[in-house]
């Protein structure tokens, strides 16, 4: 295994995050803090508790998940798209690096940034609302697994995109709506039965529900189902990446 290459890609990507600290860390933390102010402090005062958890605390896992999903996709898609855009991808393609090493470098760095961001948001949330984490190991497992899976999705988008606007299409038009409708700000059980049934087709419901369970032991769906759904999506992304490298899709002529 070319560990030097994995390390080089990983460090290169992490260096980009520190260089663009405002957009990588500060901006998502600020916007999440605003959610706490608006939904937690302003609207939350009118909603007392959901399943025995104060509203402000209830939305914390969903808000972390919202940032985790969008930032994982954004980091990984930009990471691989930018060298394609500038032409420096030639170096990656001509290097003695295998596809798993490339993925490990890019996706690993994107996932690391997202996990760090998630933990910062968690710490920030602690300043606004009282938090408890019933299953810290599961919480970290969901955090890492989701960050890695959606960074893989971002990597795929970065390969697929042939313009900067396409990098934004999936996060803006698919992920954000699914997250808002995935129980970030409410329990799916609060919906009428029809919409509850519809929500079960939203994969984000399983992510938010599992993640929230690790905090408060309350969940919209069985936690085993949440783990299975996350792992299933991870396998789907891995299969897509394998296909991309096998065919050279949008990488090699």
């Amino acid at each position: 295994m070319n560990l030097y290459a994995v390390r080089a890609i990983y460090h290169f990507e992490m260096a980009r995050a520190w260089r663009t600290l405002m957009q990588s860390i500060v901006s998502p933390v600020l916007s999440t803090s605003l959610y706490f102010v608006v939904f937690g402090a302003a609207i939350g005062t009118r909603i007392t508790e959901i399943d025995g958890v104060g509203y402000g605390a209830f939305i914390v896992p969903g808000l972390i998940m919202l940032s985790l999903l969008t930032q994982s996709i954004s980091n990984a898609s930009f990471g691989i798209y930018f060298p394609r855009f500038t032409g420096t991808i030639y170096e990656l393609l001509s290097a003695p690096v295998s596809p798993p090493e490339i993925v490990l470098g890019y996706v690993g760095a994107a996932a690391t940034k997202s996990v760090i961001l998630g933990l910062i948001i968690l710490a920030t949330a602690g300043l606004f609302v009282p938090l408890r984490i019933e299953h810290p190991v599961w919480m970290l497992a969901f955090l890492v697994l989701t960050a890695f899976t959606f960074s893989l999705l971002g990597f795929i988008i970065g390969i697929w995109a042939d313009g900067f606007e396409k990098l934004q299409v999936i996060p803006l038009l698919v992920i954000t709506p699914l997250t808002f409708l995935g129980g970030t700000f409410y329990s799916v059980n609060m919906l009428p039965p029809f919409w509850q049934a519809i929500s079960m087709f939203n994969p984000v419901v399983y992510l938010v529900s599992g993640f929230r369970w690790s905090f408060y032991e309350i969940a919209d769906v069985d936690v085993a189902l949440s783990v299975a759904a996350t792992l299933g999506f991870l396998l789907l992304c891995l299969a897509s990446v394998w296909w991309i490298f096998r065919t050279g899709y949008r990488l090699k002529a």
């Binding site: 070319n2 030097y4 290459a5 080089a8 290169f12 260096a15 260089r19 500038t86 170096e91 690096v97």
Partner: peptide, 18 residues
Amino acid sequence: DAFESVWATTSFSRGLFG
């Protein structure tokens, strides 16, 4: 890589090639 330093981008290439 427009935003990297000369040293960083040259070191990156060395690592990439193992």
